[in-house]
């Protein structure tokens, strides 16, 4: 795996923000009327269009619709996409890229599946690895925010050590402002989204460059 910066995709106009250093984890936050998952998948798929591997830990969406959403984000249907389905509904799919975990609260199960997927990529020799966790909101519905913080922090520390890219999302309407701030503490940067009449805008804090409200075209 290379230590090169990760390209978040051409939808991010500013270079200092578009290319983030290896080991960076981003929290994408916004109200329900902006599609945070779409933005997260865009950042993940941007890597697969190159030569990175992608692992998505999914709590709020089953593997099949997630694969569909991922492909519509421009990802290709190949072995470099791996899904850890943690919805707890199992998966009827015999897709060998999908590993199902008993429940969203089965943290050891998620971790162990995650470790095995990482090993595959090391064997495959992909350039980099992008890790999505969708979503922090769904996790907070099932666990108190202290446990969610610790879970995310442990994942993020791993992302940092491996030199990967980490992406998660949180809904700012469902979750208390303080909870969002607390979880954001574990991440390197916060990507805030807001709807406008002309389409979604975003701004970034925590990265060297920083970015004030800018329109986002996906």
């Amino acid at each position: 795996m290379s230590d090169a910066a990760y390209d978040l995709s051409p939808s991010v106009p500013t270079d200092g923000v578009r290319h983030v250093p290896a080991g960076t984890s981003l929290l994408i936050a916004g109200p329900p009327d902006v599609d945070k998952r779409e933005v997260a998948l865009e950042f993940l798929a941007a890597g697969q269009r190159r030569a990175d591997g992608v692992i998505v830990v999914s709590v709020d969406l089953g593997a099949r619709p997630l694969v569909a959403a991922d492909e519509s984000a421009g990802d290709t249907d190949d072995q470099r996409l791996r899904i850890i389905d943690a919805t707890g509904f199992g998966t009827d799919d015999d897709d060998d890229r999908v590993v199902a975990v008993d429940a969203p609260t089965d943290l050891a199960g998620i971790g162990s599946a995650f470790g095995r997927q990482i090993e595959r990529y090391v064997t495959m020799g992909t350039d980099g690895l992008r890790v999505g966790h969708l979503s922090a909101t769904a996790m907070l519905e099932r666990m108190d925010h202290g446990a969610v913080y610790k879970f995310l922090r442990t994942i993020i520390d791993r992302v940092d050590r491996g030199g990967y890219l980490g992406v998660s999302t949180i809904d700012t309407a469902t979750c208390h402002e303080q909870t969002v701030a607390m979880l954001a503490d574990a991440f390197d940067a916060l990507v805030e989204l807001r709807p406008t009449r002309e389409g979604p805008e975003f701004r970034v804090s925590g990265l060297d460059a920083g970015l004030s409200w800018t329109s986002l075209t996906i």
Partner: peptide, 23 residues
């Protein structure tokens, strides 16, 4: 301190299990 210690690969799952058990 957390950044320095970090959970090594072997410890990763064990750390997560610890969080799960605490809940």
């Amino acid at each position: 301190e957390l950044d320095e210690t970090g959970a090594d690969d072997e410890a990763f799952v064990a750390t997560l299990r610890g969080i799960e058990d605490e809940r």
